[in-house]
Design a protein around this nucleic acid. Structure first.
Lengths: 143, 143
DNA sequence: TATTGTTATACTCTATAACTATA
DNA sequence: TATAGTTATAGAGTATAACAATA
C-alpha cells in the first residue's frame, strides 16, 4: 500500500518540529522586542497590503485579535492602516520603513539561528528538506 | 560550496510550515477543549515523569508559566504533581488515566488532520519528510 | 549559597458576543 | 441584509522580580 490511512510517525515528527521552531522563533522575536505573534504578523505583511481579515485567516486566529495586534504594532510605528477607497469597510496594513527594517532583521536572525543548528547538514539534505517543508506548508494552507 | 552561510529559503519554508502547523494543531486542541500550550504540555509528558523545570525547557517558556499551565490541567484532573522524595524541591508531573486518554485523542486527531492534508503524498515522499523533520527537531533541541 | 517551584504583577493573546460603519 | 472591523469582557499565556522551601 502506498498511502497509509494515518501517518503517526509524520505527525509526531511535525509536532516535535513545531515545538522546536516555536522555541527558536520565540527567542529570536523576543530579542527584537516582539512577541511571537507580532513577529509572525510582521513577516506576513512583508511587501503586501493584506486586510485585517486576510491576516486573521493566515494567522489562524479570530479577527478581533488582529485588531489588537495591529493596534500595538501601529503604536510602535512598525505599520499603519490604510482604508480601501473602493470599500471603506476594509483596512489594509502597510509596513513603515522601520517595520520593513525590523522584518528584515527578524528574517535574518531566524535564518541565522536555523542555519547555525543545521550547519552540519549539507545542501543535499537541506535543499530537499526546504522543498518538502514549503510543499507541506502549502498543502496545509489549502483550508 | 556545500554549506551556505545562511539558508534563507529553508528558514522561510520552516516559518511558513510553523505557521500552518500552528493553525492545525490549535484547531485540533481547541476541539478537545485545550489550548495549544496545554495540548503541547500534555503530549510532552506522555509516559514520562518530567519535572516542571524540564517542561519549561522543552516548551521554551519561563518556569513560572508552567506553574499556571500545570495548575489548570491538574484542576481538570488530566495530570497530577508528585514531589520527588530524593529532592523535595522537585515536582514531577504524571498524567492521570483521563490525561492519557485525552493525549491519545490529541495525537490521533492531529495525525488524522496531517494525513488528510498530505493524503496525496506517497510514502516515498512522506517517509523522508518525517525523517528530516524528526532530525531537524532533534538538532534544534540541542540547546 | 544555589536551586526548584511559587506568588504577585503587568502586559499580551485569545474567543465570544454585541456593536458601528459601510456595502 | 450582509460584511469588515471594533469594543467589551473574561480567561489564558507570558516574562520579571521577589519569595519560600529545600539542598
Amino acid at each position: 500500500m502506498d498511502t497509509a490511512p494515518v501517518d503517526h510517525d509524520l505527525a509526531t515528527a511535525l509536532l516535535a518540529l513545531y515545538r522546536e521552531i516555536g522555541g527558536l522563533h520565540g527567542a529570536v522575536s523576543r530579542r527584537l522586542g516582539l512577541t511571537t505573534q507580532q513577529a509572525l504578523l510582521l513577516c506576513l505583511v512583508g511587501h503586501g497590503r493584506p486586510s485585517l481579515g486576510e491576516l486573521a485567516g493566515s494567522l489562524g486566529c479570530d479577527k478581533t485579535n488582529v485588531t489588537g495586534l495591529v493596534d500595538r504594532l501601529e503604536r510602535r510605528e512598525l505599520l499603519r492602516r490604510e482604508i480601501e477607497p473602493q470599500d471603506r469597510r476594509v483596512s489594509r496594513v502597510i509596513l513603515t520603513e522601520q517595520g520593513h527594517a525590523i522584518g528584515a532583521q527578524l528574517r535574518t536572525a531566524f535564518a541565522e539561528a536555523v542555519t547555525e543548528r543545521l550547519g552540519s547538514w549539507p545542501t543535499t539534505r537541506r535543499h530537499p528538506f526546504a522543498q518538502l517543508a514549503q510543499a507541506a506548508a502549502e498543502a496545509f494552507s489549502q483550508q
